[in-house]
Structure formats: C-alpha cells, structure tokens
Design a protein around this nucleic acid. Sequence first.
DNA 1: TACTAACCGAGACGGTACGTCTCGTCTTCCC
DNA 2: GGGAAGACGAGACGTACCGTCTCGGTTAGTA
Lengths: 206, 206, 206, 206
Amino acid sequence: MTGMEQSERGRGRPRDRAIDDAALRAARELLVEVGWERLSMVAIAERANVGRPALYRRWPSKTHLVFEAVFAWQDAPTPVLESTSTREWVHRSFAYTAELFNRPEVRAALPGLMASLRDHPDLQSALWKEFGRPGVASLEELLRAEDRPAIDAQAIMTLIIGACMVTSLAGGSPAVTARLPELVAGKEVEGKEKGGGPGKVPRPQR
Amino acid sequence: MTGMEQSERGRGRPRDRAIDDAALRAARELLVEVGWERLSMVAIAERANVGRPALYRRWPSKTHLVFEAVFAWQDAPTPVLESTSTREWVHRSFAYTAELFNRPEVRAALPGLMASLRDHPDLQSALWKEFGRPGVASLEELLRAEDRPAIDAQAIMTLIIGACMVTSLAGGSPAVTARLPELVAGKEVEGKEKGGGPGKVPRPQR
Amino acid sequence: MTGMEQSERGRGRPRDRAIDDAALRAARELLVEVGWERLSMVAIAERANVGRPALYRRWPSKTHLVFEAVFAWQDAPTPVLESTSTREWVHRSFAYTAELFNRPEVRAALPGLMASLRDHPDLQSALWKEFGRPGVASLEELLRAEDRPAIDAQAIMTLIIGACMVTSLAGGSPAVTARLPELVAGKEVEGKEKGGGPGKVPRPQR
Amino acid sequence: MTGMEQSERGRGRPRDRAIDDAALRAARELLVEVGWERLSMVAIAERANVGRPALYRRWPSKTHLVFEAVFAWQDAPTPVLESTSTREWVHRSFAYTAELFNRPEVRAALPGLMASLRDHPDLQSALWKEFGRPGVASLEELLRAEDRPAIDAQAIMTLIIGACMVTSLAGGSPAVTARLPELVAGKEVEGKEKGGGPGKVPRPQR
DNA sequence: TACTAACCGAGACGGTACGTCTCGTCTTCCC
DNA sequence: GGGAAGACGAGACGTACCGTCTCGGTTAGTA
C-alpha cells in the first residue's frame, strides 16, 4: 500500500480488466462443458473473444488460469452449521457438502484441485484450516458434550468429504447415497431411530 | 449352425501376455517418475519395448491403460476379505484400501484418472463393478447376519474409499486416520450400545 | 532317399495356383480403382480372399506383386503397323498408342513402370528393343523411301510415346490432342493436305 | 467498399519465407538421396530445421510440397522465351525443358509425382496453368504471325514435355535426342515449304 | 499536442502427443 | 507342410494443443 503503484501502473496502456473477467468466465463455462482434460487455451480465448497472448500476459499457464477461475470465485464461504447434536450436524453437513460437490463446476475442478493438493503440502494444511475449521469447531463442541473425543470431528469431516467426493466423481445409486449420513452419524441407530426422525431409512429406488 | 463359435477362439496369433505386463509395469513406473500429465503412450511403448499399436490394440486410451495399471486387477483382483463380523471386515478393508491409495503410482494417477472418468463412463461403472464387487458381496452376508440392510455394504465401501482418497491426497494426521475405521464400523456391534453412554440424548449446545 | 524332385515338390501341401491368379486380378482391379499410391497389400488380400502371408510367400514385396500383375498380362504384343507412308504410319501409331496409354490399367501402372525404368538401365534398352523395335523397323523403311534419315524413326516414336504419356497422365483438351499427329507427321502439311486425306484435322469431340 | 480489404493483409505474424525456401531445398536434397518412396514429411522438417505443422500450413500434402520443390515456380517462373520464330522458340524450349527434366531431383520425383497426380486434380490443372502458360502465350503470337493455328501452341508444348520426359526416364541415344527439336519445329517455317531450302529434305546429321 | 510504452487481436513458430494406418514378419491353429 | 487369421515392431501420417514470438494497430498517461 505504499506508493509503488504509481511507477508500476502508469506507464503504457493499462490492462483491460474486462479481459480478466471474460477469460475467467469462459474458463468456468468450458470447464463445466468439456471437463478439465479437454479444456484448451485456444478455446478459452475464442469464447472470451480475446487473443491468446492476452491470457499468457496474465497467467503463466493454463493451470494458473483455471485455478483462479475456480477458486477466486467463492460467493459464500462455508456456512457455519448450527446444530443441537452430532447427529443433526452430520446430516446437515452431508446435505451441504453433497450439494457443493455436485455442482458442475466443482465436479470439473476437483481433480485439478486434488492434484495440486497432493503436490503442495502447504495447501493441504491451508485447506483444513480455511475450509474445515469453522464447521469442525462447532462439531468439536457437540462431540465434547456427548463425551466423545474431539479428534472425531476431523475424522467425521474426512468421511463426509470423501464420501461426497466419491459419489460426485464416480457416481453412486441414490439408495446408497441416502444411507451415508446415517452410517456416519452412527451410534444411536436403534436408540432413537423409531420416531421417524431424520434417520429414517430412505427407500432404495433402484 | 455347425458350431463355428468354437473356431472363433483360436484364430490368428494370440496376443502376447508379456506385452500386457510390460506395458502396465512401464505405466506404473513412468507415472511415479513424471506424473500423469507428462505420461505419454509413446513413452510407455518405448520403456516396455513394445510398438504403439500393440498398446492401442489392448486399451482404447491412455486412461484405460493407466486405470488398469494402477488398480492391477489382473494379478490380485481385490482380495476377498474373510472376516467374522462387520467390524473386522471394515478394519481390514480400511487397511487394504489405505495401503492401495498410498502407493506412489496410485497417488500419481488418481487426480488425472478422475478427470478422465468424465469422458469414459465405461470406466465409471467398471470402477464399481470390478473394484468393489467381490468384497462387497462378502460384506453383505455379514450385514445380513447382523440384521442390517444389505445396501449398507456399498455405502460402507463408499465411506472407506472416500476417506482413503482424501487422506491420501489431502493429507491427514495419523490420529485422525486411526479413528476412521472405528467410526465406520460403529460401536454397537459387540456391546449393543450398553446404555447411558454417549448414545443417550444429544444435549443442545448453543 | 531317391529322386530329388520328391523332396522339392511333394513335401507338404502344394501352393494353390488359384491364389496367384486371385491376387494378381485383385491387384489389377485395385490399381485401376484407387491408383498406385493408395494400393495396399491388405486391400489386395481382402479382395482376393487370401491371407497376407500368402502374398509375401509368393512375392517379396508389394512392388514385385504389382509389377507381375501389370506386365505379365500382355494379351497382344505391339501389332506391326502396315502403312504406305510416314504420314499414315504416324497417324496410325498415334491412334494405337493413345488408346493404349489411356487404358485405365496402363494409366495406373505407368508411374511405377517409369520409376523402374529410371532405376534399371537394362530395362531401358530392353524396352526399346521389345516394344519399339517391330514398329520402328517398318517406319525406317518408309523414311528411307522418302529420303529421310532412319534415325528419325526412334525420334518420332519418342514424340508419340511422350505426347500420349503426357496426355494420359496430365489430361489435355481434345482439340490439342487432335493436332498432335499432324504436327509429328509434319512436312507435307500444305503440299498434300488438300485432298482431305488422313491429314484432315479431326474435329474436337468434347 | 471502405477499403477493409487492406487491413486483411497484415493481420497476424507473417509467414517466414525462409521456411518455404528451407523446406523446398530439403525436399529436393532428400529426393535425390532417398527417392520419392522413402521421402517423408518428418525428414523434410528435420533437415529444414522446421516444425512439421509449418509444412502442413503451407502445403496440403507431400505431393504438393514436392511438386513445388522440383518445379521451383517461385524463383524462376518458367522463363519466357524471347524468340523471333517458332523454330527458334521450339529449339530454346527443348533445351530448357530437357535440362529441367534431367535435374536429379526431377528425375527422382517424377514417377511418384505422376502417381499422385491422379489423387490431386488441382495439381493437374496447376501443371498446365502455371508451368506451360507463360511460354505458350509467346508461342501463340509467333504462330499467329506465321499463319498457323494458335491451338498448336499447346500441342507443341505437349510434344516437347512428353519427349523430354521419355528421354529423361527411359533414356535415349544422343543422336535421337538431337533430332527431336527439328522434327517438332517443322521445316517450312522460314521458306514456307516452297522448295529447296532447309525444309526440303532433312539432311541426316550424325 | 505529441510522444511513448504497454496493451490488443491475429496468427505463425518449434515442439510434442495423439490415434490411425500400412508394411513386412512372426506365430498360432486348422487342414 | 500350406493356408487364414491376426499380433508384432517400426514408423509415417495428419491433427491438435502448448507456450512463445512477431506483426500492425490502439490506447492511455506523460511531456
């Protein structure tokens, strides 16, 4: 925030912000339409009505562009789930996470995200802190109130995210998907189940 | 007809199984060395001392080849886990799956493979049929013996695979990893959920 | 053992002569249909209902097969042209040669023939002796009778063959083609032309 | 008509003419060294230090490239022969064409080129238009001045090209070759065939 | 107002992988 | 042993994309 931006900025024609937006938008659209593998820079440039060098002036590679397109676009940062029990928390979290991972743009971006997670351990910890933290904190409280170890919070989160990821990427019958929350919520399966609450076993449809 | 279907089998020179093995081995090695992105069919063919057409005769695309290479269904088709209870089955399956997903070649291939799954629906169903099937069958029996719905078998498999995938790619502390099997196996298996304990009534927190 | 002919001839199954014929016929047909460049052994084998190895057992390469197909199939060796003047001889020879070079199988085979002529000087002299000799001899007589050098016989032959070759391979309007014999016959263009004899300018037909 | 057609020219990076030259030169060299059959686009690209796409950007096929390479229309587009009579024109044209068809690269390429002509009709017409056209126009003038039909221009060109092609590929004694121009030029050119002159009876030369 | 640096689209460049094709050989079963 | 089927290594084909580089032309801000 010093005065650097003056000598950096004013020389020559400034970059057209509209190109950034058009490119990112085009990348998101194409990601959904053709997938990560068949996404090409030339296609992005054409859809955005932009020259290819304009893209490379802004992002050093296709990967960088797509990553910004997907992740610098968070309209709603992980809502904190208000719940009164672990069971409820798990069901709500499952619903939210499943919806998130089944958005077409997330489905398209997931593999790339995972590849970068694997290759950049710093992103791994960042992910857990940023993405998981708020929800996990509230879950930990619930667990403590139920005399269960706080470490289960992250484990439950892992199960939920993993299951939603697999379902999103490799498919999975609705009957199976419907059983997942109950299995993770676990425990009082027979204790409270009777009353037809949220734990009611959904009818398999196929 | 005269039984022509018999003569259909032995016609022409049979394929050399050694080529299958050499190609799969080369794919695994290269996957670890250069990663999915820079893995090419010509490199596989060269390392395996094999012509490129011989590869395309066996696998319709790079994805199919790598898919088979990393999951190696041929020599050890997902060992059937002999267990006496759901709990034991889950623990064993977790151990096996975690080991599988932490092999370097699987870690290298997984994201790219998942990106390609979108374009190869046949692999999507193959994943479930070939990979999960044998173990799931034995699990279903155990579940039936414990009066639990058979559909849980696939759901449990989903939880295990998903959790191992997340752990493999996004990291995860050993303390968390160690809790996963227990959470999936559930607690009521042997003690039938004694009483009082954590299962009683969830107290509202906040 | 007794006679050598036994060990040479009688061992194993004798080759099927019908395969030779079918292959050569298929090669000729395909040559006409798709041309020398796109002619492939697999196509010949398929059309002849024959395995590819059976072809390689008989001919060491595609070139050998096609050459035999084209040249071991001469049904009528260069007819000797009986004429009473150089002019008449030239016109008749042009008609015959043009017809020959416009046969589809000759058009298809010509380039290959020329390539082998270029590469095998012995074929060159053989060609002139076998193909040109009979006609050239009669032309030399006619020339001598008209007080022209005998060497012109070969030169005239060269002009006729060359012109027909160019016309056959690269096309050429009928109006042009029709003028060729007159130009080669030369000389008495205005002297004897009047009487509407064979020198009359043919009408272009298309 | 606002002059937009002007701005059409300079768009994008202009093609590097040095690449055209390097590719054509490489094609000529390789043609002489390995022949038409074993000439490959990749070999041309390598020798010319050029990417393969750069070749396909310029020529739609190997045939087109070699066609241009051997006839080299670009730097010396069939020199117009300035002559004062048909006779002189024919002699000069024979000399030029004979030299052209005896260049090693032309001898190497001709048969393969002719085989490919069948599949590339555009080259067939190009051959007549680009190769024969300029000279034929000047010849037509000469013919008109001598009261001969203009159509003979193309016919004479056909005779010259054909004779040179045959001589180049199938050989031919020098004595025969030397007579060719005289036969095509005809004798009546200057003396109008009347009597005595050189047109009377051709003296045997050698 | 004029200069000038950085932008812009179009498109050529070298490099490289793709998946297909054909060649000539080799290998297996069947006759 | 001949014959058909078909796999094999080698390698060319033509296409697509990557990331870089020229082009000629535009668009600010500074002089």
